[in-house]
Simulated scan of single mutants.
Amino acid sequence: MEIELRSDTFTLPTLGMREAMFQAPLGDDVFGEDPTVNELESKVAKMFGMEAALFCVSGTQSNQIAISVHVSKGQEVICDELSHIYLYEGGGIMANAGASVKLLKGDLGRLTVSQIAASISPDDIHACESRLVSLENTVNKGGGSVYSSEALQEISDFCREVNVPLHLDGARLFNAMAVTGQTPQQFGAWFDSISICLSKGLGAPIGSVLIGSAAFIKKARRVRKRLGGGWRQAGLLAAAGIYALDHQVERLKDDHARAAAIAKICANLPWVDTILPVVTNIVIIRLKEGITANEQVALLKAKGIRCAPFGPQYIRFVTHLNFDDAALAAFESQINQ
């Protein structure tokens, strides 16, 4: 049995989702006339208590649009050194916004208000103007780590005090909320803009949603068009997102339980050094000295287990809706062969 654990982006639409896509009313979204896209955007904005939303191709696109709206050429984005917007978006901060990046070293990708406060540039013509703080929740490179409500409130209050917008890369935000009990309305109050992904744990085939004020989304729509991201009859995809939000949020806790089980199974394997704390659906394993990630990935692939290298000496497993209890049992059997 081949077991797919490289990413939760490998999820496939369920039968119910496919039926919803087939039934979706369609129009031209560039003209604002796709009723299903409009429904998705309205639904997500209302869910988070924000004014407006924009359906985008991917989390990378929605993050980069947000940065381009918030930040002008020559200004800077403050983020953790493990941030997806810095490591995995093709240099988009520089290429799209012409902005600099100030990297901070947090705890598994999580920043504190004191770190952020200390990093804000002085009002000095020699300094790059700090114009955006970006957080990630959950933190992919931090093993799916999550922020506490207290930390987010402190950071939000500080950013408002110094008039620096706060953006959230919430690609796996619903995973975080499944752990903490936080609500979308809380996140809408904490952040000026939020990107959420529909195609990871929620299981839609494609798409992310960017949320913010009406004025922010109006500007974001122009940036999306400039990047070639205008949709046509995108209601087929929006319908999948609506179905995911209605039917596939609660089950994220199952993914978390299976990720914890994977960590337990792997804990005493001879090639495992340490495992980052498993909080959500991501398991990151540090390999013992002398074992490279590419070598170990190849060995596991030969056993029918697909995982991803995550640095020279790290590998990553990510659970998702197509990894069920039968697949977990097969994983335990095959990894011990």
Rank of each mutant, 00 (worst) to 15 (best):
212 G>V: 03
196 I>E: 00
309 P>Q: 06
180 T>H: 08
235 G>K: 05
170 G>L: 12
218 K>M: 10
138 T>V: 14
12 L>D: 01
36 T>C: 03
108 L>S: 15
18 R>F: 04
80 D>R: 00
158 F>L: 15
1 M>Y: 11
328 L>F: 09
7 S>M: 12
256 H>S: 04
250 E>C: 05
67 I>M: 06
295 E>R: 08
244 A>T: 01
52 A>S: 11
13 P>C: 06
34 D>V: 03
220 A>V: 00
10 F>T: 12
9 T>I: 11
159 C>R: 12
158 F>N: 11
330 A>M: 12
57 V>L: 14
165 P>L: 07
334 Q>G: 06
176 A>T: 06
26 L>G: 01
24 A>R: 03
232 R>D: 10
304 G>Q: 03
305 I>E: 00
33 E>K: 15
71 V>T: 07
279 V>P: 07
275 I>E: 03
175 N>S: 15
263 A>P: 04
268 N>L: 06
127 A>Q: 15
35 P>H: 05
175 N>L: 13
111 L>D: 03
276 L>A: 09
123 D>H: 14
274 T>N: 08
98 G>Y: 00
117 A>Q: 15
121 S>A: 15
255 D>C: 14
47 M>H: 11
143 G>R: 05
281 N>V: 00
3 I>N: 04
10 F>H: 13
192 D>L: 05
90 G>I: 00
24 A>G: 03
264 K>Q: 13
237 L>Y: 14
240 A>H: 02
120 I>H: 10
186 Q>S: 05
246 D>T: 05
313 Q>G: 11
37 V>C: 02
55 F>Y: 12
123 D>R: 14
226 R>Y: 13
97 A>V: 01
312 P>H: 08
179 V>D: 10
308 A>S: 13
139 V>R: 10
106 G>N: 04
228 G>S: 05
50 M>V: 08
264 K>G: 08
291 I>C: 12
181 G>S: 08
117 A>W: 15
114 S>E: 15
19 E>Q: 14
2 E>N: 11
278 V>D: 02
295 E>W: 12
197 C>K: 04
78 I>F: 06
158 F>H: 13
324 D>R: 15
76 E>S: 15
3 I>K: 05
